[in-house]
Design a binder for these strands. Structure first.
Lengths: 150, 150
DNA sequence: GTCGAGTGTCTTGCTCAGCGAGATAATACG
DNA sequence: CGTATTATCTCGCTGAGCAAGACACTCGAC
């Protein structure tokens, strides 16, 4: 099984990476008494915040594939844990904008920071052509996964 | 956000890849009326089968982080769907060896095969040094994630 | 303005994955 | 043989997420 040609070995390796990153996330979840969905939500919220976009309850739910009831209880859960605040939208007052608490952001950075730093460090060990190969490969896999929606 | 240096861009790309691969798995899950856990279980079972290892109920549960009750109901579910068979262990008759049904294997290959093929194809577009960089990077990330169990 | 359709969120009642505790069955070891 | 250990299953429960619908706000037509 370890002798299936160099390409399949890398495919297998990529899967191992996704598995380990998933396990890493679930360690974060368990440690903070969060569910996998909660972690995904927090990540989406932090992304939005970094991009200076408002994240409404509905948009968050859609992103995570939850219906409105599930979304409400997700936000309830996060709010109860103090990770998130509900703020009524100013422009459209039906909307609920979900804001991440500063402490949650710090918590996440403290947990995922070292791994990100280590990855950046790894990448600095490669020259421009090698980095381009890595980037191109990842882009290719991402696009292939996106395209595979038959 | 897209201008954070070449290294962080790749880190972000890697996350996008894991997200998209996760979504791809969940499309497979939904289409076959399976839960995420069921998919993870089937993958673990196929891996074991390819490596010619027997997978007992307990080992499967441990691999997925389930307790014994959860493991039993997981296998019940998979068996009910015809994806899996229970076989009493010959050597140790307390054990239950879980075998994947041929059809489930084919189903999985039909679904994940194209993506794997596309990935192999991508890899063939790189020379030996570039492939080594990709492999080394993935190994490094995997090891970093494994090491981060503080 | 105000009426109605449309949209965003929350409530209610339910299903089912997974947990804890403990029962049952087979093995190992004295 | 009998006791401890190991592997799985059963029972009762908690809680995430769903479907349906209530409620609140917005916006366009008149």
């Amino acid at each position: 099984m370890a002798s299936q040609g160099p390409e399949l070995e890398i495919v297998h390796l990529l899967r191992a990476v996704t598995v380990e990153l998933g396990l890493h996330s679930s360690r974060f979840a368990r440690r903070n008494a969060l569910h996998p969905t909660d972690v995904r939500a927090l990540i989406a919220l932090m992304d939005a915040s970094r991009a200076d976009e408002e994240m409404s309850a509905g948009r968050l739910g859609a992103l995570l594939g939850l219906n409105s009831a599930g979304t409400t209880s997700l936000i309830d859960r996060l709010e109860r844990g103090g990770h998130v605040r509900r703020v009524r939208g100013r422009a459209d007052r039906r909307k609920v904008v979900v804001e991440v608490d500063e402490k949650a952001v710090e918590l996440g950075q403290a947990f995922f920071g070292p791994l990100i730093d280590r990855t950046v460090e790894l990448l600095q060990g490669y020259d421009e052509r090698e980095r381009a190969a890595i980037r191109g490969f990842l882009e290719g896999v991402r696009d292939a996964a996106v395209a595979e929606e038959g």
